[in-house]
Each structure stands twice: as structure tokens, then as C-alpha cells.
Amino acid sequence: MVNSSGGIWLIGGTTESVTLANAIASRGMPCTVTVTTTVAKSLYPQTPNLRVQVGRLDTNGLEQFLEKHGIVAILDASHPYAVEISQIAISAACARHIPYLRFERQQLSSQVSSELDNSPIIYLNSFQDLIAGNYLHQQRVLLTIGYKHLPLFRGWQDQSTLYARILPSVTAIDVAIASGFSPDRIIALRPPVPADLEKALWHHWDISVVVTKASGVAGGEDIKRALATELGISLIIITRPVVDYPQQTSNVSVALEFCDRYV
């Protein structure tokens, strides 16, 4: 159905948001999706009722965005680590009394590792905890954390052998090189990465430590955890940031019911 009085703001940038966008488009609901890259835009359906806007939104530009697109409800399906846009959206929703729902991929169950159970999996709350510790010293490290946090590891380039797996984009590669990664220690690869390729990369580079985010199945966390256990390679998982979402679901049907309620 189409309601000319307003539409949904779907905060995108994840595989889950593409699934939601397709479902919303099939129902004919007016919807504006926001993403940060033109590559991401190409993943969404092209229909008269669904618009995809490329670019980063900040607090100053958000008011105009909400007015321009007549937003009546916010469905936040951004990446679990994209905290800034979620916080901006929540603040705007509260101020303008706009219904907000967080859609987030399910987390894999975690267990606190210990020396007693010889678990190769280590959970840390932040990249700062990782950098401040001695986890990487003289190790061969594969970073599968995206490109934004790579500058944090510049000081470790002469203390360990670092490799970065990033998305195949000019921005990501530029940041990696500026962070001290030589071209032979960068691999540009779009997920999902199958288990056999993941294993081959670890073997090829003789990796002793892998650093990743708690990104769930969509981010290949399950594959990395299984390989770390199989090969006895340390896997450091940076846990998800804690955000006080007003309401949250990982159920597509619940998300669509939310959209139906307000559009």
C-alpha cells in the first residue's frame, strides 16, 4: 500500500537491510534507504516507492532529511558497529516522537575464554583494550575488522606482522596503505568468505592471530570461530558496542509489522 503522508526511513548498509528493502518494496510501501557508498546502493531494488540516498547523515542534516522525505517511522538496520548513525536516529526519533525499531542480526552465543579450557577465542570489549594489551606482539596477525580502525594499528607495524582484509574500495585501500600496510599485506575481498578460502588464507600467510568483530553469521564469525578451534589459532573477537535501543528485533516479520503499523 502507498501512503502519500509519509514513509519509512530504512538505515541500510547491511545484508539484512537489503532483505528488508526487498520486502518493503514488494508491499509498495514508501521508503527511503540511506547508505554510505554507491556500491551499497546498487544492492537495493529499484522501484518507484523506494529511494536510496548515498551519503553520511549528521545531526545538522537530519532534520532536513526527515522533513524532505516525510519520515513517519525509522527502521534501523545499520551495521552493529555503526553506533553513530544509530544514536543520531534514536535522538531524532525521541525529539520528534517518531517510532523507531532497531533490526539487528543475531549474535552468536559466546563463552568467556580462559587459560583453563585452552580456548583459542578471546573476547575484548574494544579495540583500545586490544591495542593496550600484549596480544599482537611478535605475532602474524590477520585483521578482518574493516578499514576504519586500521590506523589504530600503525604503531604495531614494527612489533608484529600485520595483514588486512578489507572491502575492495579505493577508500579502504587508501586507508590501509596510509596505516602502514604494504600492498602484499592487503587483500581486498567482499564477504561472504567461504570456509575453504578462509582456511587457505590463514595457511598462506602463516597466521597466528586473527582479529574480527562479533558480526554474526553474516560477517563470517561462525566460520572463523570453527577454524580457530580446528587449527588452534588465536581468534580475538571485539564485542559489539552497547547501545540503549528503544526497541529491537531480529525477526523480519516483526520489522514488517512495524512498517505496516505506521505507513
Rank of each mutant, 00 (worst) to 15 (best):
Glu115Leu: 15
Leu116Thr: 15
Leu116Arg: 13
Asp117Arg: 11
Asp117Lys: 10
Asn118Cys: 01
Ile121Gly: 05
Ile121Lys: 05
Ile122Phe: 06
Ile122Tyr: 04
Ile122Gly: 00
Tyr123Gly: 03
Leu124Ile: 08
Asn125Ile: 10
Asn125Ala: 14
Gln128Trp: 11
Leu130Tyr: 13
Leu130Ile: 03
Leu130Val: 12
Leu130Met: 06
Ile131Cys: 02
Ile131Lys: 04
Ala132Pro: 12
Gly133Thr: 14
Gly133Ile: 12
Tyr135Cys: 07
Leu136Asn: 01
Leu136Gln: 02
Gln138Arg: 11
Gln139Asp: 05
Gln139Ile: 07
Val141Gln: 02
Leu142Ala: 02
Leu142Glu: 00
Leu143Thr: 05
Ile145Phe: 05
Tyr147Asp: 01
Tyr147Ala: 01
Tyr147Trp: 15
Lys148Asn: 00
Lys148Gln: 12
His149Ala: 13
Leu152Lys: 00
Leu152Gln: 01
Arg154Cys: 09
Arg154Asp: 10
Gly155Asp: 02
Gly155Met: 07
Gly155Lys: 04
Asp158Thr: 12
Gln159Arg: 12
Gln159Lys: 14
Ser160Gly: 05
Thr161Val: 03
Thr161Trp: 11
Thr161Lys: 08
Thr161Ile: 14
Leu162Gly: 07
Leu162Ala: 05
Tyr163Arg: 03
Ile166Asn: 00
Leu167Val: 09
Leu167Ile: 10
Pro168Ile: 00
Pro168Tyr: 03
Pro168Cys: 01
Ser169Glu: 03
Ser169Phe: 11
Val170Trp: 14
Thr171Ile: 15
Thr171Trp: 09
Thr171His: 12
Ile173Gly: 06
Ile173Asp: 04
Asp174Ala: 14
Ala176Val: 14
Ala176Asn: 08
Ser179Tyr: 09
Ser179Asn: 05
Gly180Val: 00
Phe181Leu: 02
Ser182Arg: 12
Ser182Asn: 09
Pro183His: 05
Pro183Met: 04
Asp184His: 11
Asp184Ala: 07
Ile186Ser: 02
Ile186Gln: 01
Ile187Arg: 06
Ile187Cys: 06
Ala188Leu: 09
Ala188Arg: 07
Arg190Thr: 13
Arg190Gly: 10
Pro191Ile: 07
Pro192Val: 02
Pro194Ile: 06
Ala195Ile: 15
Ala195Tyr: 11
Leu197Lys: 03
